[in-house]
Simulated assay, not measured.
Amino acid sequence: MKKNIGVIILNYNDSETTRKLCETIRVYDSIDHIAVVDNRSPDGSFAALQRLSDEKVDVLQSDKNGGYSYGNNFGAFYLMDHYHMDILLIANPDVEFTETFLIQVVRDMEKYQVQAASGYMKMPPHAIYPIMNKKINSCARETLECTLLLKKLFPFRGEFVRLGAGVQYVQWLPGSLFAIDAHVYRSLGGLDDRVFLFYEEQILGKKFLKAGYRMAVDTDISYFHNHSVSIRKSMKRYEAVKRLFLSKYFFYTEYGEISMTEKLLLRVAIAYGLFMRKWLYRLL
């Protein structure tokens, strides 16, 4: 039985990148509908993107710029309410994927009985993390990651997702491109829109673990993510790190079930990390 597939592409001040992705995938027969959501861009993106509208593409504008989770929820619930989707594909504007990739991801979901899936994410050489770990990091690990020195002295050693290793069960999926069962998405209330940007993937992963759902990455197929090209257009480096650390604190205090001591140590590490990076970025 064919699954109805809906795609959400969230735009903010990057209509050209969004347009290119939409025009590439709109010809994929496996995709039933696309929702292009402009997240209240101040650069006139919404007007530019409206030219994409047709029987397969709806161009929407959110009622506010509430961030990644809010904007994707806006598009996801719209598609579910208007077109009764079975599978939702959340795609950053700066990704490239084939129709064969998408079909295989949906097949993997059924074959391996997982409720969310993706493929191996390839990124440009400048990307900080070209590979991902299977599990959500502990609070202790993420506290170290806030610092500049300690994370070098105590490098991360975890179980990584590696290309060509088949289908791997994971605790989280990169938010740049993943498919999710629409009914599961609705039952979980979508993404947590209290987070503006970053750690949305780990939050969704925690929701999955709590509800008994599973995620997987098929490392025999891949897509390309031009990592953070859209973010860099709208956020300065220090502001991006600050947003990242705030979301980190929210995640571990709301979903991590950490102690008061761990909360205090994380706050100290965040304050120290931001202070050092502010001075470092000024020098660079």
Score class of each variant (00 low, 15 high):
residue 85 M to E: 08
residue 49 L to W: 12
residue 76 A to R: 02
residue 46 F to I: 07
residue 90 I to K: 03
residue 90 I to L: 14
residue 20 K to Q: 13
residue 61 Q to I: 14
residue 38 D to K: 07
residue 34 I to D: 03
residue 79 L to K: 02
residue 39 N to G: 09
residue 55 E to R: 14
residue 23 E to L: 15
residue 28 Y to K: 04
residue 46 F to D: 03
residue 84 H to M: 00
residue 85 M to R: 05
residue 25 I to F: 04
residue 49 L to I: 11
residue 71 G to E: 01
residue 56 K to S: 07
residue 28 Y to M: 02
residue 31 I to F: 04
residue 24 T to E: 07
residue 48 A to T: 13
residue 74 F to A: 02
residue 56 K to G: 11
residue 84 H to P: 02
residue 31 I to D: 06
residue 35 A to Q: 09
residue 79 L to V: 13
residue 44 G to I: 13
residue 29 D to S: 15
residue 39 N to C: 05
residue 51 R to C: 12
residue 73 N to H: 08
residue 50 Q to A: 07
residue 48 A to K: 13
residue 43 D to C: 12
residue 61 Q to C: 14
residue 45 S to T: 10
residue 64 K to L: 08
residue 84 H to R: 08
residue 21 L to M: 04
residue 46 F to S: 05
residue 46 F to K: 02
residue 25 I to L: 01
residue 51 R to Q: 14
residue 37 V to D: 03
residue 40 R to N: 12
residue 20 K to W: 13
residue 67 G to P: 07
residue 45 S to G: 12
residue 36 V to L: 04
residue 39 N to S: 15
residue 34 I to M: 06
residue 19 R to I: 08
residue 73 N to A: 06
residue 57 V to M: 01
residue 27 V to S: 08
residue 32 D to M: 03
residue 89 L to V: 15
residue 87 I to Y: 02
residue 70 Y to H: 13
residue 77 F to W: 04
residue 43 D to M: 07
residue 71 G to L: 05
residue 54 D to A: 08
residue 72 N to C: 11
residue 21 L to I: 07
residue 22 C to Y: 06
residue 87 I to S: 03
residue 87 I to K: 02
residue 36 V to F: 07
residue 90 I to E: 00
residue 89 L to P: 10
residue 27 V to D: 04
residue 45 S to A: 14
residue 27 V to M: 00
residue 42 P to K: 01
residue 65 N to S: 08
residue 84 H to Q: 10
residue 88 L to S: 11
residue 74 F to M: 01
residue 24 T to F: 02
residue 59 V to K: 00
residue 50 Q to M: 11
residue 60 L to C: 03
residue 52 L to W: 10
residue 69 S to N: 15
residue 35 A to F: 11
residue 82 H to R: 12
residue 84 H to C: 02
residue 76 A to T: 10
residue 23 E to N: 14
residue 43 D to A: 13
residue 43 D to E: 11
residue 50 Q to V: 11
residue 20 K to T: 13
residue 25 I to K: 01
residue 64 K to S: 06
residue 61 Q to D: 08
residue 69 S to Y: 03
residue 57 V to D: 00
residue 57 V to N: 00
residue 33 H to A: 01
residue 88 L to K: 05
residue 32 D to Y: 13
residue 52 L to H: 10
residue 44 G to P: 13
residue 40 R to F: 09
residue 41 S to F: 06
residue 69 S to H: 07
residue 53 S to I: 10
residue 88 L to Y: 12
residue 87 I to R: 02
residue 59 V to A: 00
residue 81 D to R: 14
residue 19 R to V: 05
residue 48 A to E: 14
residue 56 K to L: 06
residue 21 L to W: 06
residue 47 A to M: 11
residue 34 I to F: 09
residue 28 Y to P: 10
residue 45 S to F: 08
residue 22 C to D: 04
residue 55 E to M: 09
residue 79 L to P: 11
residue 77 F to P: 03
residue 61 Q to H: 05
residue 54 D to N: 15
residue 78 Y to H: 11
residue 45 S to C: 11
residue 19 R to H: 09
residue 32 D to S: 12
residue 37 V to I: 13
residue 87 I to V: 15
